[in-house]
Amino acid sequence: MVVVLDAQQVIPADRAEAIRETIWNTVVRVEIEHHPEPGRIAARGTITDIGRLNVCSISSNATTVRRTPRLASDDLPPSVFFGLQVSGSSMVVQGDRQAVLRPGDLALYDTSVPYTLVNKDGIHQHFFRIARSDLALPADAISLLTALRFSRDDPVVDLATTYLHRLVGHLRASALLVADAVSQPSIELLRAAITTRLPDPRMAREPLEATLEVRIMEYVRAHLADHDLTATRIAREHSISVRHLYATLARSGITLGDWIRVHRLEQCRKDLARPGMRSLTIASVAQRWGFGNASHFGRAFKEAYGMSPREWRERRQGDHEGGRR
């Protein structure tokens, strides 16, 4: 299910109610304080259910969102939100704690307990709602971490934010056809972000193992251009053996060397087609994406795409020039 919210498509007098109804029916019941002038109320975003994960990506000039004591006792199954700050800043208040979020920060809050989100400059966040039963963590463990700032200084949080940004980007680009396959790894990654902050390290072991493949592949994507991206380095960064690395990826049918080569070639193919990169030699483009040997790159490119890098670049250049006529 995908719901698009655009307040500009609603007459000013009805905007506040239309936003409230959409959020109440698809995300969570909250009270929202909007701009006092109805004509200046703005909200735009999408709400998507990915399997058992609810994703709300929103930009709005609303200033305060409250889950009141009355609303916190509604019939929504006990759930938690992870709020990912996209731009600007905001504050989460729950219980006797409050957290100020900057871009890239995460915060956790519990729907069964009243909370307030303060957004002086408006809302610019991605919200991820998960049923507490799907997190499979004790309620008292979750309560230790609500309304605290999860900073990207933590490597697991940094990985989670990178992954979540990419997930929302895929949702915007097209419908996600593998919702069930994406849902559980996403939940496990958020679970890992929680458990690594808990005082008992034993609680982190299971989610860290469950998210190992996701964490490995996010690391590989982030370092795809590095010439020293080897199995040994990747294994060392994740505190596992090379054998464990290969076994983990093999469960999903991934061969590490093939995956890296295919995705490096695809990045080269895109760069060679870009008009703004014509000043770069083909060897320089290959070098940018980890191919140290130009001859090897040329052979691999032709094998993958049926033409040489030069032929591909010239064809795309001709397409661009033909489009301008």
Rank of each mutant, 00 (worst) to 15 (best):
L159T: 15
C56D: 11
H170F: 10
R132S: 12
I23T: 10
R299P: 03
D105P: 00
D96H: 10
T195P: 06
V118E: 15
E218Q: 11
A99S: 10
Q85E: 13
D200T: 05
N61S: 03
L208M: 14
F291H: 09
F127A: 15
R205P: 00
D134K: 07
I32Y: 01
S284Q: 14
L71H: 01
H223I: 01
I234P: 00
V27G: 01
L144C: 06
V80G: 06
L145P: 01
S151C: 02
D121N: 13
T162C: 08
P36M: 09
R40C: 10
S79L: 07
R66M: 09
A107I: 02
V55G: 08
M307W: 04
G276W: 06
N293W: 04
G298A: 15
G323W: 08
R243P: 01
P77T: 09
A286D: 08
E303T: 12
E237F: 05
G276K: 12
E213Q: 14
A72V: 04
S174G: 10
E303P: 04
R132C: 15
S143T: 08
A181S: 11
H227A: 15
Q125M: 13
I58Q: 11
L164C: 02
R172D: 15
T162Y: 05
D154H: 09
T146F: 00
A139W: 00
E213I: 12
D75N: 13
N61Q: 07
A147W: 03
F128E: 07
A225I: 05
L117Y: 08
P78K: 06
D154S: 09
T230G: 01
D200E: 10
N25T: 12
G51N: 04
I260D: 04
L256M: 13
Q85F: 04
F297W: 03
V27I: 10
S79K: 01
Q94M: 10
G95R: 10
A173C: 07
A99I: 03
D271W: 02
S279L: 11
R149L: 06
R149T: 10
L76A: 11
S186C: 07
Y219H: 14
D74R: 02
L145H: 05
S174R: 11
P78W: 05
V4W: 09
L198T: 08
E321H: 12
K120N: 15
V220R: 01
G88M: 02
L272F: 04
S308F: 03
